[in-house]
Design a protein around this nucleic acid. Sequence first.
DNA 1: ACTATTGTACTAGTGTACTAATACAATAAC
DNA 2: GTTATTGTATTAGTACACTAGTACAATAGT
Lengths: 140, 140
Amino acid sequence: MPAIFTVDPHTGVPIYLQLIEQVKRSVALGVLSPGERLPTVKQLATDLTINPNTVARAYRDLERDGVIETSVGRGSFVSQNGAKDRAAAALTDVASSAVDAAVREAKSIGLRRSQVRELFSQALERWYSPDGDAKEHKNS
Amino acid sequence: MPAIFTVDPHTGVPIYLQLIEQVKRSVALGVLSPGERLPTVKQLATDLTINPNTVARAYRDLERDGVIETSVGRGSFVSQNGAKDRAAAALTDVASSAVDAAVREAKSIGLRRSQVRELFSQALERWYSPDGDAKEHKNS
DNA sequence: ACTATTGTACTAGTGTACTAATACAATAAC
DNA sequence: GTTATTGTATTAGTACACTAGTACAATAGT
């Protein structure tokens, strides 16, 4: 099996976070069904050429979020009860935190509501529009 | 003089960033006028009981942003040409980066435009007084 | 019971951001 | 030119996040 998941150590994004997101997306999209077994910690670690602890870290967080259930000797499985919803919720939570932090930051800097809205509109166009590139690069 | 600026080492926000923001805000709001002199690196360091390098770090970044001008032996001064605008722009840039990163994150996670908008609306309500003047959505 | 397979705990190494300690170099003032 | 005042450079210490190395413990299968 050609490794369900992939990671890139050079992207700057922590490996365990990459794994978490991939699992959550797979579950949220139905690629992984409730009850389905995940690769074992050691197997996945071997496949991706990373340390078992890194995989374990990801699985631990996934279990905390109720997306998977794991036990020693058996392995890890997608949760039965509403794993799909949990995964989707967990995903949006990540985004929600980022958005929340950004707004808080903007407010602490002293921006008004309308200014923040404007910044957001620009960012939205920048990332969700077909004419998305050819934009200026601002900060460092 | 009771120290123009204040810092709190326990806040988690790096000291030099706290200084940068305060200077930018002071300039943007007109509390500090173009040409006005800032505390010397060592004086401010002494007042705030921090290391001169930390102040220097802040001043260096402020000069890079064109908010202040500094030279050895003379000291640091608020820039003459449009420092106010530069400071305001630099401030919004910080917020802009945060907002941009949040939207990018949301997109990478797989959220749709409308979902991101919803998250943003919630965050906005959360941090800005719920009253405000109704809701004015320019675009759909 | 035995053994292989599974996840887990503990420890250490690595990189990075931030701040400090200290000495240095450039300018101004006289 | 001498001296004090200014910013700057170099180095080190600290804290934290991330990952790896290694050994351990629990379960399943026989």
